[in-house]
Design a protein around this nucleic acid. Structure first.
Lengths: 243, 243
DNA sequence: CGCCTATTTGATCTGATTCAAACAATGTGG
DNA sequence: CCACATTGTTTGAATCAGATCAAATAGGCG
């Protein structure tokens, strides 16, 4: 059942009562398979439904003049990339698949009705959007103040912990389908420089990154290299196993 | 009455019924005068109250390694800089005054109770935090993709429109107490380079910036220079008068 | 008046970009 | 099943936007 990915993610954010979980399960969900590199919604759209990731990885991006792309977020299993659209009618970013994806859609009216009926559900969804915002603040800090190597290390730490929190990790390995050009667009670094920085991290034996899989070889060192502290992710400690 | 600043800001975000406005007015508010350059709350705090700006300008910032500061937001009249703390207990940023300020404080419990009782109030406050997030996305795009001159022009456009929307503009002039080092910390640019870029904008007769006052001399050109489009601010059109 | 911070100017340096091109991997259509 | 196209990764070389260093000037305040 596709909604379970979404419910699991919400439960990792805040407690839901049996009643609330049941109510979310009753929401009519429309599920779609979408090829890689397709826009799901576009900047300027006024969507009538919100989506969540059932399988695959998506990103949110904005275009600046000169068609330079800034990726403003990656979304993993259970994440709701445009949950904000239930209260901000005009989308200020686009959402696109990075891999082939399965995406679930729920009409705004149903979500709003449920939030009004059950404030506890509203709180958890609100919290979801607040955690997104906390990630934005951390990314601003990365892009604005940290060197390329530090930014990349930081991003790898974040994606690793978030993957782990939704059960995508196998030991210190996670699927990592994000390409180097995409890392560059997320962190404000050119592809060439991303490549050189990644090679540096490999040479230093901090990571192994091949064939769409990331393995962390030295977690402590990678966190240091990335000036990383997990607080901003608001992941409850029982979901984390990295030492 | 200090809450009116907060209510006015909320009304600029979404409609409030008489009943809802009345309920907000009943909230117990604690008001404080705070000198310039003082932290109001600090990263790592677990506040029990949220604040809003009654007078002055505040900023939110995070510290990276090497004590480099990233300013992640500016707050004007009526803004609630740490409204998010009602649902994210651990603060991931600090809030500081940039000028002498009057700040109002409301206990979380009272806000939460009100949000549960009146979902309409919750919606508007949620929307406040979502607009903050939209600004974060735009800033990421600026810092990651735009040149120093463009970033600065963009920021000036944003602060101008936001000031105008809360009634701080006199024609094309607004109070602008943000210093060049602060602009630099917000946009990821060194102070020296901020200075040279500001001089460029003056030389091009786009702006006049002296004595804490910003005057826009050529709004259309400044928007072009800043790759600026106001959509992301979600300001209702009747609040804007710039042509 | 003296201290502190903001603004300004000049000179030098560098992390990162851009340009160019080879190579590898993956997918597609005939 | 192979030729071809497309996208991702890698390497080298030249260049530049912006940082850093240094210092003078100016404004605000106790």
């Amino acid at each position: 059942m596709p909604v379970t990915a979404f419910i699991a993610r919400l439960e990792s954010i805040g407690r839901l009562s049996e009643e609330e979980m049941h109510a979310i399960k009753q929401l009519p969900v429309h599920v779609m398979s979408i090829k890689a590199d397709q826009d799901i919604v576009r900047q300027g759209d006024r969507p009538t439904r919100a989506c969540f990731v059932v399988d695959g990885v998506t990103c949110a991006y904005k275009l600046a003049a000169d068609s330079r792309r800034q990726i403003v977020g990656f979304h993993l299993l259970g994440d709701a990339p445009d949950l904000l659209s239930i209260h901000l009618p005009l989308l200020d970013m686009s959402i696109a698949t990075l891999t082939p994806c399965t995406i679930g859609f729920i009409q705004h009216v149903h979500i709003r009705e449920l939030c009004n009926r059950m404030p506890g559900v509203a709180t958890v969804m609100w919290r979801h959007t607040l955690i997104d915002a906390a990630i934005f603040r951390e990314w601003m800090t990365s892009i604005g103040q940290r060197t390329a190597r530090t930014r990349i290390s930081h991003l790898l730490c974040e994606i690793f912990l978030r993957s782990q929190a939704v059960g995508l990790a196998r030991g210190m390995k996670i699927p990592f389908p994000i390409t180097q050009p995409e890392i560059g667009d997320a962190l404000g670094i050119s592809t060439v420089h991303v490549n050189r920085s990644v090679q540096y991290l490999r040479r230093k034996r901090l990571i192994l990154l091949v064939d769409g899989t990331l393995e962390i070889l030295d977690w402590a060192a990678l966190q240091r290299a990335g000036d990383f502290s997990a607080d901003y992710l608001n992941i409850s400690s029982e979901l984390l196993y990295a030492d």
